[in-house]
Write a protein that binds this DNA or RNA. Structure first.
Length: 256
DNA sequence: ATGCCCCCGTCCCGGGGA
């Protein structure tokens, strides 16, 4: 089973690119983010026409997360626990076969410091609690998404230029490392320990052409998922298409 | 130091993104 994560920057604007990517057998499960679509306007039909299932958690204009799968999707949970007042659609979790997956769009947090950065850290705290609770299920779990975290300097084309940014601040990296200390594995680093691999290139200033990228999209695996882990990679091709998302998909294979 | 670019809404600007 190949599981991918992709921040598509609008499901509607990117629909043709997404559907073509699925049609070329790129994955079996797609966790995607920034759908920017209310549930009633989400282009479900394009996925069902392929025979795919879809679970969505959207809001107007901003954010929005979804899961698409060849296999049926069960036990969907929308939103992180522990804050009923949080209206931002950034988390959806579900079961596919015997795998528990979550599609995550973690807050950006800029400018930092400030209330948006505080929200990011609170959100990461809630994610950590949920992630720890999930481990008790002792099953393959994949937390995938746009984490808005640059884990290490090697994951950024210009670490000095990004110093102080919400994506690289020590508090952010520490909160991310708490997930790995709890027992989750950064799948890309498990297979490519030292390679420079990016998943996002800004639309501006020719960042793609100059390879000014950062690695902020991640797949975090429970030990039971790591036991079944095969190859892991980033598919750069969609970033080079016309009218692309600024992110490109990351994927991993689980063997059953 | 700032903006470059792109998406959304009931819309020709402003908020948000990273």
């Amino acid at each position: 089973m190949r599981i991918a994560s992709w921040n598509v920057n609008s499901a509607k604007s990117r629909l043709d690119i997404i559907i073509n990517w699925l049609k070329s057998d790129s994955c079996d499960v797609l966790l995607f983010q920034e759908t920017k679509s209310q549930d009633e306007n989400f282009p479900r039909e394009a996925f069902s026409a392929l025979g795919w299932h879809v679970a969505i958690h959207g809001q107007k204009s901003y954010n929005g997360v979804a899961i698409a799968s060849r296999h049926p999707i069960h036990d969907v949970m929308c939103g992180l626990p522990c804050d009923d007042r949080d209206e931002q659609a950034r988390y959806i979790e579900a079961s596919i076969e015997n795998v528990r997956v979550a599609s995550i769009y973690l807050p950006n947090g800029n400018p930092a410091p400030g209330p948006k950065f505080d929200y990011k850290l609170q959100w990461m705290n809630r994610l950590n609690q949920r992630a720890a609770a999930l481990l008790a299920r002792e099953q393959p779990i994949i937390l995938g998404g746009d984490f808005n975290v640059i884990p290490d300097d090697v994951d950024c084309y210009d670490p000095l230029g990004w110093e102080g940014d919400a994506l690289t601040r020590p508090e952010t990296r520490q909160a991310f490392r708490r997930l790995t200390h709890t027992g989750y594995c950064d799948a890309l680093r498990a297979r490519h320990p030292h390679e420079v691999i990016y998943t996002y290139w800004d639309y501006q200033a020719g960042a793609w052409q100059r390879d000014h990228g950062v690695r902020i999209d991640h797949l975090l695996l429970s030990p039971e998922a790591v036991d079944r882990l095969g190859a892991v990679g980033v598919d750069k091709a969609p970033r080079g298409l016309e009218k692309p998302s600024d992110h490109t998909p990351i994927w991993c294979d689980l063997h059953f």
